[in-house]
Structures are given as C-alpha cells and as structure tokens.
Design a protein around this nucleic acid. Sequence first.
DNA 1: CATGAATGAGGATTCATTCAT
DNA 2: GATGAATGAATCCTCATTCAT
Lengths: 171, 171, 171, 171
Amino acid sequence: MLRIAREQLAAGDDSLQLNTIARLAGVGVGTVYRHFPDRHALMEALSAERFDELVAEARAAAGEPDAVAGLHRLLRSTLACLLADPRLAAVLKSADDAEVRTSAMKAELDEVVAGLLERACRAGAVRADVGADDLRRLLCGVEHAVRAGDGDARRAQLYLDVLVVGLRPAG
Amino acid sequence: MLRIAREQLAAGDDSLQLNTIARLAGVGVGTVYRHFPDRHALMEALSAERFDELVAEARAAAGEPDAVAGLHRLLRSTLACLLADPRLAAVLKSADDAEVRTSAMKAELDEVVAGLLERACRAGAVRADVGADDLRRLLCGVEHAVRAGDGDARRAQLYLDVLVVGLRPAG
Amino acid sequence: MLRIAREQLAAGDDSLQLNTIARLAGVGVGTVYRHFPDRHALMEALSAERFDELVAEARAAAGEPDAVAGLHRLLRSTLACLLADPRLAAVLKSADDAEVRTSAMKAELDEVVAGLLERACRAGAVRADVGADDLRRLLCGVEHAVRAGDGDARRAQLYLDVLVVGLRPAG
Amino acid sequence: MLRIAREQLAAGDDSLQLNTIARLAGVGVGTVYRHFPDRHALMEALSAERFDELVAEARAAAGEPDAVAGLHRLLRSTLACLLADPRLAAVLKSADDAEVRTSAMKAELDEVVAGLLERACRAGAVRADVGADDLRRLLCGVEHAVRAGDGDARRAQLYLDVLVVGLRPAG
DNA sequence: CATGAATGAGGATTCATTCAT
DNA sequence: GATGAATGAATCCTCATTCAT
C-alpha cells in the first residue's frame, strides 16, 4: 500500500488520491481510510522510513569527535534526505503532526541536533543564536532554493556552502 | 476584481477560485476568465504592483555608491517584499510566466541585481560563483525558512544575516 | 437509471445529460459516471436490449427456408428496430464502441446477415458485391431518409421497397 | 467571414462557434450576429453557393433530351454535391429554413426534379409513387450510408447504383 | 452600423468520504 | 476488519447572447 503510494509519487503524481492508491493496491478504499485517516497521515507514514534514516544519520553525525566535521556532515546528509524525498521535507516543515510518532521523532532529531550545535558553537563554528529549530528551517529553505531552479545538482553544493559559511559567528 | 481577490487572500483563502472571486466581485465568471485565463495569470496580476515596487527598490539599492551597503539594502528590501506578499514569492519562483510583462520584469530585476552583484563581488563582499539567479533562489529559500515557523519576525533578521555572511567568499 | 434515461429520451430530450439523469433517478452524479463513463457508453447500454432483439430477429430471418423471404424479413424487421430506437441506429453506425459486448453483437449480427446474404445471392435476389456491412449502412440510410420527412410511416414501406429492388442484380 | 467559417469547417471544427469566427475574421461578435441570427442561418449562407451549383446541375440534367440519362446525371451530381459539403446535406434535410431564399431554392429544385421525374416515369425508368421530395430524402439517405463507413469512395458508386435500380418500377 | 466586453446559465467531471454488506 | 458502490458538494470552464459605447 505504501509501496503503491510511493510508486505514484515517483511517477510524478503528487495528488496522492486515496481512491487511486486503493485501486492500484488492490484493497478497498475503506481499508486505506482505516490506516490513514487523511492525506497528511499517509504522508507521514510515507516519510517515516526516511525520517528514521535521517535521525540515524543525525545521530551518527553528532557522534563524530570533531563537532565541526559532525555539523557539516549533518547538514550534508539532511539536505540529501530532503532532496531525495519531498514528503519528508513537507513533514519536517509542518507544524502539526497527525501521528504522535512523528512528533516524537521530530523531538528526538531536535535534541540530537541541539547537542551537536552546542558543541559546534563552543568550537566557534556556529553563532550562538541559532537553534536546532532554526537549523531545520534553514535547511528546508536551502532545499527550497535548490528545487526552485532546474535540477542542477551543483547548486545544491553551493547553497549548502553558503549556509555553512553563514552559520559562522558574524564578524 | 483584483481587490476582491486580495481580500480573499487576506481572509486566508489561498484557493483563489475564479468562480468565487467573480461572485464576490459581482461580475460574471466569464469576465474573470477573460481577464485571467487561469489562476497563474491572476496571481501574476495580483503581484505585478508589488513586483514594480520590488524592481524600484532593487534599482535604488543598485544605485547606492557603496556596493556592499547596496547589496544589503537589496537583500533586506527584497525579503521584506517576499514576506509581505506570498504571491510575489510564488511568481518569482515559477519557471514559466503567463504574461510577457512578468518575464520582462524578471529579466529587468536580474539585470539590475547582476550589476550590483558584480560590484559587490569586486568589493570582496560576495563570492564570485553566485549569480543573480542564485540570489533570487536563496532569498526565496530564506523567505521559506521564515514562513516555516510561527510568525516570529525576529527570525527574519537572523536568517537574512546568515545569508549575508554566507555570501562572503569562503575562507 | 436506464429507465429514467429512456423516459428522458421519450420526452424528447436527446441531450442525455448525465447530471440530469442522476438527479431524476435520485442517485448521485458519481454513480451514473461509475456505470457509464461517457454518453456513448450510456447509449450503448440503452440500446443493448433492443440490439438483442435485433440479433434475435436477424437469426430468425436467417433461419427461414426461403432465403429471399428471409432477407425481406430481415430488412423489414431491422428497419423497424432502427425506427423504433434512434439510439440503436446511432450505435449501429458508430465505428468505435465503448463496450466490448457491443462490438461482439455487431460481429454476430454481421455474421448472421452475411450468411443470409450469400444464400439470397445464390438465389439471384441480391447482387454479389453487397456485403453485410453495406447492408447495415444502406439500412441506416433508409432509416435516415424515413426520418428526414415528417413522420409519414407509409414512406418507410416505399423506401424499403426501393432498397429491396435496388439490391437485385442489375440488368 | 464566410471564408473564415469555411476554413474552420475544413479544419475539422464542426462547432461553428460564432465567437470564434468573429475573432478569426477580425470583426466583432455583434457583426456576425447581425448577419446570421443563429447558426442555422450561417449554415444556410455557407451552403447557398453550393446550393446554386446544385440547382444549376439539376437544371442541366433536366434539360437533357433523354430523361433517363438526365435522371442518372441528376442523381450522380446531387450525391457528389452532398458528399462535398455536409452543410448542404444538412440544409437539404432540415424542415424549417432560416432564410426565405433557401426555401425558394428548395422549391425551385423540387420543381425541376419533379419535371424530370415525370418524364423519367413516362419513360418507364422510375416508379410512379416516388416524388421529388422522396428523391431528395433517398439521396440524403445514400449520402448518410456513404459517410457511415470509412471514406471508401467506391461504395458511393455502389449505393448510388442500388438507388438507381431501386427506383425502377417493381416487377 | 460595428464593436467586443460582460454576462451567467449550463454542463462536464472529480474525488473525499460514508456506510451497508 | 475489509470492502467498494454510492454519494453529491464542489469546481472547472465554455459559449451563446446581449447591449452600452
């Protein structure tokens, strides 16, 4: 069922029609509705797996001895995740979650990132007034900027660079 | 008619239904369709005025003797415009325009910004591999980041700061 | 639902609007669309019953010992069917069918008619260069001619007569 | 204006939208409406020229010394006209005319044909119970039959043949 | 007499959602 | 719990027609 939904998205159909998914998945519409009350819930479910990967990546980055290297790794891998799955970006941005698990993962991510940020800050690589939430929003912004143009992948590196430099304490 | 559309948007209705607008404006649906073949055209029309202001601001910023000060002013005013009118941001991002005038204004803006960027680059405030198009996309990204959270206006200043610093030549 | 559609047609409304039918039938529009994707499908469904009768009649006519009498009977009964239900004539004319069943019935009809034609041909009542398809088209033509005037039923007999005579081998 | 309409029809657009014609013709919609109150009037105007040709042909056919040869010529040329211009066929079938001129031409045609028919009848080539009106309707029927299939031109000759033979006194 | 902007009834179609089986 | 037929509000858009200029 999720597989079908993913295939639909991959095929360029962003509408995520529950009816269509049900038909393609060979199950009744009601069944889909039972599992995912609305499209938002479906979206969260769709991105949950990637979200897991994202958190794992973040945790690994936070585990690096060198905080600055860890931060760079975090930024890079997070952006990669966001670009790989637009759904994930949407979930990350959205203020209200359909599933508690999503909220929990967000909190977990923020906690991990906050820890890394603090270390990076003490190392002088990041200004003090930037929090985990800011970082999330800024990364979503970069994702947005990358997506705005044609699919030129080299821009992703440039924009990420701008963010890395921009995060340094001003002066 | 545009007034009604703006009121609708102000009232939180982003759907921009041509039918509804027609009804509220007291004109026939056909009239709306005559003026704006589709929603995109309407959106461009809605933002055209602001776009004018934006270009004027950009021209003023580009006219400043100090290129760096000019650039900062450009970034600040552009972000302000984008935040003031979500439609403008959408038009700025979109790759294909409904009206030629919109494309013309985009070209004009890019030209003005490109000139300023070059000067700022020679002054050492901006890395050489960032073009007018990149700046536009990055600003849209910042707008996105600002909008992502609750309406905390102070974040706008922070994110803009990050962009300004991030644009400096790395190293 | 089909009943309502038939009533509409009987009432002189040839537009077969799916919306109207839904309303009158007391079912949702979607229901009608589920059953009949477009008007053509509805038309085929409407005429399917009569088409059955037509095929049965044709089969009976083909079963007559005297091929010539059978052919006359076939022409007479077919024309009667076409005049009784304009939908049936339309379906018979149309090149592409919505339902496979319709195509199957057409093929069946043609087969039966082709057999009878051959016998009648051998009996000297029909020229050799007229096929089942031609007969179908000619009958539709006669139907058209009958309908062209005011509803003078006597003309039907005359025009059918012209066809019968016209089918004879020239000379 | 008529030229534009004809071009539209030639291009396969049978809708004959007065608005479109006006736009393409570079005149106001009102102007079109002034000349042709409705689509029927336009259609008649469009076919008037052909109708002239048809009447001229009929007159020529009626003028032939040999009534039978004349009748055959009449049938052949009329069918050719009908096949050349679907509008003409529609006008010929329609019971009520928008313009008096159309009715006049119909009357004229019928008169000419009636005369020829009577001569052909006396010559034994046509049954007595077929009038000019019947002939018109039968020819429209043949046109219909020809059009029903793919554009196989050879069928036209066959069906016309069937009509010619069918018109002979039975027996 | 020409114009063409404005009209808005009308018709087609979709799709989220329910609920009896 | 699963099903999927039924629902019908909602939306889109067209186009014949009018009438003030």
